[in-house]
Structure formats: structure tokens, C-alpha cells
Computed example of a mutant assay.
Amino acid sequence: MLPDHAKLLALLQEAGEVVGRKKWQKIVYISKKLELPLQEKYTFHMYGPYSEELTMRTEELCSLGFISEIKERKAGYYQYRYQLTEEGGTFLEKMDLDWPWKKAEAIILQLNEYSAKFLELVSTMLYFEELPKEDVKEKVCALKKSQNYSEEDMEEAWQLIQSLK
């Protein structure tokens, strides 16, 4: 098992449970941007930053029985719940993993409290963070027009980013 897979297990262990594929993608991306040692490569996608590598690694971890993926039918769509399994926890205990446990816990627990929609906003803002703040706002408004993010949403996202750095 590769260390990059084990880091995802550690992240999920900190979260306890993550509800939604999009939310899982955003939590991993934001954690990476906040300098947790995650290696997944991201590109910009319809719902913000997306990693095909993360999707593949998650599928592999589910196939190995290290992550539980529960598919639930919601109003017209399916929602997925992810949790570390007992086997995943046992494997993680045996790994000599270089992982910043305290820093990760502080980040993950806070991020997991937010909705996938809000984390989509935060991750999109972080994706364009090298731009001036006003340009980031313009990008978000242009690319995420259908999400109808308010000024308050954007300010809350900036505050979250600053509090986590």
C-alpha cells in the first residue's frame, strides 16, 4: 500500500465520516492547499477543483475494504457516505506514516462542518489564490454563477481560509 493511500485513510479517520463525493474532493483539495502532505493532482472542473487521482485512490481503498462507501438515494440523486473501516484503521495503525495529526485534525474537523456547496466556493477561491482578491471574486462570480454565492458567502469563505492558514 502506498503512503499516499494511507494519508487519505488518516484524513478520513480525522473526519469520522464525509457525506458526498464532492465534499470529499473539496476537503482533500483544501487540506492540500493548507499544506497537509497530500499528493493528488487537481484540475479545474465544473464543481471546482477535481482530482481523478483521488477518485481512483478512493475506489482502490473501497475495493480493499479500508473505506466504507454507502450509496443512498436522495431526492432524484445518489449520495455517498465515506468512513474508515475497522480494517482500514488496523492498517493505518501498522503504517509508519509521516502525518501531522494535530494540524490535520484542526483542519478536517472544521471543514467537515460545512456544506459541499460552501466548500466548493472555498476550494474555487483557493484555486485562484495567486490572483488579487477582486479578481478571485470576479472569477468565482463568472464560473459559479449558477451557485448564486452572496457577498456574505465570499466573506465567510475568506475568513475560513484565513483562520485555517
Results as ranks from 00 to 15, higher is better:
residue 1 M to H: 10
residue 3 P to K: 15
residue 9 L to G: 01
residue 11 L to E: 06
residue 15 A to F: 05
residue 18 V to E: 06
residue 18 V to Q: 12
residue 20 G to S: 12
residue 21 R to D: 05
residue 21 R to S: 09
residue 27 I to W: 04
residue 28 V to A: 11
residue 29 Y to K: 02
residue 29 Y to T: 01
residue 30 I to K: 12
residue 30 I to R: 09
residue 34 L to D: 02
residue 38 L to S: 02
residue 42 Y to W: 08
residue 43 T to K: 14
residue 44 F to W: 13
residue 45 H to Y: 11
residue 45 H to A: 06
residue 48 G to C: 00
residue 50 Y to L: 12
residue 52 E to S: 13
residue 53 E to I: 07
residue 54 L to D: 01
residue 54 L to A: 02
residue 56 M to D: 02
residue 60 E to C: 07
residue 60 E to N: 12
residue 62 C to I: 15
residue 62 C to P: 02
residue 63 S to E: 07
residue 63 S to M: 15
residue 64 L to I: 08
residue 65 G to Y: 14
residue 76 G to T: 03
residue 77 Y to A: 09
residue 79 Q to D: 10
residue 82 Y to M: 01
residue 83 Q to K: 15
residue 83 Q to T: 11
residue 84 L to N: 06
residue 85 T to D: 00
residue 85 T to P: 05
residue 87 E to D: 12
residue 88 G to T: 03
residue 92 L to S: 02
residue 96 D to C: 08
residue 101 W to Y: 06
residue 102 K to C: 01
residue 107 I to V: 08
residue 107 I to Y: 08
residue 108 I to P: 02
residue 108 I to S: 01
residue 109 L to Q: 10
residue 109 L to I: 09
residue 110 Q to T: 11
residue 110 Q to I: 11
residue 114 Y to Q: 07
residue 116 A to I: 01
residue 116 A to T: 04
residue 118 F to A: 00
residue 119 L to D: 03
residue 120 E to M: 05
residue 121 L to W: 05
residue 121 L to N: 05
residue 124 T to F: 04
residue 125 M to N: 09
residue 133 K to R: 15
residue 137 K to I: 08
residue 137 K to M: 04
residue 138 E to T: 14
residue 140 V to F: 04
residue 140 V to I: 06
residue 141 C to N: 03
residue 142 A to C: 03
residue 142 A to K: 10
residue 143 L to S: 05
residue 145 K to A: 06
residue 147 Q to T: 11
residue 148 N to I: 10
residue 149 Y to K: 14
residue 151 E to F: 10
residue 151 E to W: 15
residue 155 E to W: 03
residue 155 E to V: 12
residue 156 E to K: 14
residue 156 E to C: 11
residue 159 Q to L: 10
residue 160 L to K: 07
residue 160 L to H: 11
residue 161 I to M: 08
residue 161 I to P: 04
residue 164 L to Y: 12
